[in-house]
Nucleic acid binder design. Structure first.
Length: 902
RNA sequence: GCACGGGUAGCGAAGCGGUCAAACGCGCCAGACUCAAGAUCUGGUGACUUAGUGUCUUCGGCGGUUCGAAUCCGCCCUCGUGCACCA
């Protein structure tokens, strides 16, 4: 279809407000939402898959006769927009080139491109530009969005709304203040996310928590030598402490205590909210061969020994030694003994964990081929292996003091508890691997004070969310479990940050509400914005009391000028809420979708809880993930211009079911096009038939319900009605598939299978299908609108049907293809199929096909189809001829005619 | 590492206890139509067998449940996705 016609159709939809539902109607309402796009670049076909799916479900709901609302807005809060603005300000060549390319998709004049690019120094210009082009992309795709409710998340009204939401969170006790470790760059003075870390996307950096154990020195019990460990469960397996003579150690005042630690650890402790006082150097050789006291048993003296493997960059640069269960410690001890260290020679590994099949460290290390301290890789492997075995499968034996005879997991928790009780415990966080920022600065862990969290740990809250989920419909169903799991998994989640665009956090100046947290309840806001605009409300009017009234229906004081607006909004909400379905990608389950459910269940009454959620997997291209770095993303608009919206939509929908990753295969798209063209041809034949002479039908068609029309055209044959019913049956199946959100199936039933039925019909009866198609044309067009709206709308218009195809209501079509005709079709098909099989077995080049049938009815059908059989089999046909050299007639059964070729 | 989700014919992809040698699409092979090519149409496309509708072996691997499994259970291999302050 020509682009001009498509644009005309889009314009007509807008002009006639086809997708702008009556605010309050008698019909059943259906309120659809989908996460709004983040406009920092053109959308690609992967995004298109998700929006197209929403559009299909939205359009089908209209067919079902619902009053449907699908609004759209733009998410502009967060850091990425700022990052782009910075890049443009810095004139970063790569970034400039990329954005030049993006702008060039929409703007062909190079001067204007540069102009726009430079305007990107202002982040608001970025979102304004991409927001407007995305809206155009959506229109080009034919999405049935109600644009009247459009806004951005920087809109002052919206920010008032988000602040109201946070006041409500606080009232409910969901907003708490606390401390939290985060990845941080001390040089840059800010938190770093995955995007800020070198290789952060491919090689994830996590935060590891080390336990600190404070050992009093024997000769100075008020000074602690502080070790860092991941295995406090082996507390009574400790035989000694290791220090590394090549490192710098200090005695420092930490939170008022005297700690001996590596000098390197000071900065980390500072960043992790420790108060550091006086610092004095302590040479390692002064520490070596002194004794420390066991933190839980002062009678146990733990000698401090020198070794080389201890790393200053991890923990405190001091570790405790458990040679019975730690491969490094075992080998270090062996080495010390070899070097003649007298203290070391008195030390023997202490085994405190019971292995079901016994355990001896030397033998264990042999299996990893560890021979010396230098076999670092093998030692590392052995360490990981033993940890896995002991943590998951083992219990402590009786030698582990108060940690005896319990699971290793339990011993770990218990040790921390006991150490805490006697003030011998603390902790330090480390990145899970050595990491640098993209600028090359080290990534460390810091604890920020003043951090606010949304606290999802409340049991009652989770309970409510599960209850909500249990009542929701989830498509595909398998994601219900993922959602439940996600709700259980969520704990405390930081909800404010210092960088980026966002809504000011109402309880602490200088902080923004984090951009995932500002988008959990906004489905309410779509229903507020028009009233706010129409009444010219000032943002400052929208205080807590106002939203309490507008959303929760509380009363404003007598005579408050805002009452009318609040009531109007509340009325709209009472009609439109809850959100009937929200469609998104499974990647959002663990954050956005869960927050959405949680926010609703905490703040709104049960009748306003979400009703359904649906998901579709992502789209890859030619087997590869689309990414900016690979340069293989296809901008949505490029694909639309190349293939046209209907083809893109059909390909997207028909290539895979929602829960499967879809593969955009460049060479397969044109193949689907053939089918779409074939369908158009068939539909046009039906259309022409109506135009040319079907006037009598037309009158009756329009008046007709779902039953066959009473015919004036007497030339119609039973098989033409059979075909009509057959197609109706397919459309009915398609309808059912749409209702189940099985869109791949819906496409197959409405787009592909009827074409096969028509082929079969033509083959068996050699008749024209136009009559049958004309009878089902209206319903067929309606059934393809969700997937190919432009084609449907165009033909609808050409047929002169009233209104818009996109606005039609249709009950589920039913078709009952006549049984005798069906049998007839099957009988002929069977013969044609068998002929080919027999032909291969026949000798020579047969010219004649002998058919033997023992059933009178069947014989009659075969007689009727004789010409067709001859045409397709390219043989002369003789029926029930006396000539039967192989005695085939005897083998014929009813429904199974016997064949002979000669 | 942890969690979840996949692995079906040459490829893509349905099916999710019997009607399954497995829909549909592509590719490939043969035929029709063409001077020819393309497009279109028809048939075939696990193996074996036979002038035909029969037999056998298949749905990542190995076991198990069942009268019966691609479909349910266990283990293993393998691929993908997510893993927190980030949109």
């Amino acid at each position: 279809m020509e682009p001009q016609k498509q644009q005309d159709i889009t314009r007509a939809w807008k002009q006639h407000q086809v997708f702008e539902p009556k605010e309050i109607a008698e019909k059943d309402k259906y309120y659809v939402t989908q996460p709004y796009p983040y406009p920092t670049g053109p959308l690609h076909v992967g995004h298109g898959r998700t929006y197209t799916t929403t559009d299909v479900l939205t359009r089908f709901a209209r067919i079902q006769g619902k009053n449907v609302l699908w609004p759209m807005a733009f998410h502009v809060t967060g850091t990425p927009v700022l990052a782009i603005a910075d890049q443009v300000k810095r004139k970063d060549a790569d970034a400039m080139q990329m954005y030049r390319g993006y702008i060039g998709i929409y703007e062909k004049n190079p001067e204007k491109v540069e102009q726009i690019l430079h305007s990107f120094e202002d982040p608001k210009k970025i979102v304004a530009f991409f927001g407007s082009v995305i809206e155009k992309d959506f229109d080009a795709m034919g999405y049935s969005i109600d644009w009247r409710k459009q806004f951005t998340t920087m809109d002052p009204y919206y920010q008032q709304f988000v602040q109201w939401q946070f006041h409500k969170f606080k009232e409910k006790g969901a907003l708490v203040k606390g401390k939290y470790p985060i990845l941080y760059s001390a040089v840059d003075g800010n938190a770093v996310g995955e995007d800020d870390i070198k290789d952060g996307d491919t090689d994830k950096v996590a935060i590891t928590e080390f336990q600190l154990i404070k050992f009093p020195l024997a000769n100075d019990p008020h000074t602690f030598i502080v070790v860092a460990t991941l295995r406090p469960d082996t507390l009574f397996g400790i035989t000694n402490i290791w220090v590394n003579p090549s490192l710098e150690y200090v005695k420092a005042e930490v939170n008022g205590e005297k700690w001996i630690i590596a000098k390197n650890a000071i900065e980390k402790l500072k960043l992790q909210q420790k108060t550091i006082g006086d610092i004095a150097a302590v040479p390692a050789h002064e520490l070596a061969h002194k004794d420390a006291l066991h933190p839980l048993d002062a009678h146990m003296h733990i000698p401090i020994l020198p070794t080389t493997f201890v790393n200053a960059e991890k923990g405190t640069g001091i570790v405790c030694s458990v040679p019975g269960h730690a491969p490094f410690d075992f080998m270090a001890l062996e080495e010390a003994k070899k070097l003649g260290d007298a203290t070391a020679q008195r030390i023997h590994p202490k085994y405190i964990i019971a292995h079901p099949n016994g355990f001896e460290m030397r033998k264990f290390l042999d299996t990893f081929k560890v021979q010396s301290m230098n076999d670092r890789t093998q030692l590392q492997q052995a360490t990981e292996a033993i940890y896995k075995i002991e943590f998951y499968e083992c219990r402590t034996n009786g030698e582990n003091g108060p940690l005896s005879n319990m699971s290793v997991r339990g011993a770990k928790d218990k040790s921390v508890e006991l150490l805490k009780a006697v003030n011998r415990w603390d902790r330090i966080y480390e990145p899970s691997r050595k990491a640098l920022t993209r600028a090359g600065n080290p990534v460390v862990v810091a604890i920020l004070s003043d951090q606010w969290f949304l606290d999802y740990t409340s049991k009652e809250w989770k309970e409510k969310a599960h209850r909500c989920l249990n009542r929701m419909r989830i498509f595909p169903e398998k994601y219900a479990k993922t959602l439940h799991d996600s709700i259980d998994w969520l704990e405390q989640r930081p909800c404010i940050r210092k960088r980026g665009l966002g809504t000011p956090f109402p309880f602490l100046g200088g902080w923004m509400i984090e951009p995932l947290s500002d988008s959990t309840l906004y489905m309410l806001f779509y229903l507020c914005i028009e009233t706010l605009r129409e009444n010219g409300m000032k943002p400052e009017d929208l205080d807590e009391a106002f939203f309490d009234a507008a959303i929760l229906g509380k009363a404003l004081p007598q005579g408050d000028a805002r009452s009318a607006a609040a009531q109007e909004i509340h009325g709209k909400l009472q009609y439109w809420y809850p959100n009937d379905i929200r469609h998104t990608a499974p990647a959002h389950i663990q954050n956005h979708s869960s927050f959405w459910i949680l926010a609703h269940t905490l703040l709104l009454p049960e009748e306003w809880w979400p009703r359904a959620a649906s998901f579709n997997e992502m789209m890859i291209r030619n087997g590869q993930k689309m990414s900016k770095s690979k340069g293989n993303i296809i901008p949505l608009i490029d694909a639309v211009q190349k293939f046209g919206p209907d083809l893109m939509r059909l390909y997207t929908i028909a290539s895979s079911s929602l829960e499967r990753t879809a593969d955009w295969k460049d060479e397969q798209v044109p193949q689907v096009e053939n089918k779409l063209n074939e369908l158009e041809k068939v539909l046009r034949q039906g259309l022409d038939f109506i135009r040319k002479g079907g006037a009598d039908f037309m009158i009756q068609l329009d008046a007709a319900t779902n039953t066959a029309v009473s015919m004036k055209n007497t030339s119609a044959t039973p098989q033409q009605f059979w075909l009509k019913e057959k197609i109706m049956q397919r459309l009915g199946e398609s309808y059912e598939a749409y209702a189940q959100m099985d869109y791949k199936m819906a496409a197959q039933k409405a787009f592909f299978e009827p074409l096969n039925d028509i082929k079969q019909f033509k083959k068996v009866f050699a008749e024209d299908e136009s009559f049958a198609v004309s009878l089902v044309l209206k319903r067929w067009l309606i059934m393809i609108t969700p997937i190919a709206p432009f084609l449907a709308e165009q033909l609808w218009k050409e047929a002169g049907f009233p209104g818009f195809a996109s606005a039609q209501h249709l009950e589920q079509p039913e078709g009952k293809p006549a049984k005798e005709v069906q049998e007839r079709v099957d009988a002929v098909e069977k013969i044609l199929g068998d002929v080919e099989r027999v032909r291969k077995l026949a000798k020579g080049n047969p010219k004649t096909l002998y058919i033997y049938s023992i059933d009178a009815q069947e014989t009659e059908w075969i007689e009727a189809a004789k010409a067709q059989i001859e045409k397709y089999a390219l043989l002369q046909v003789k029926i029930n001829d006396a000539h039967d050299p192989l005695g085939k007639k005897a083998k014929a059964q009813k429904g199974k005619a016997a064949l002979y070729l000669e």
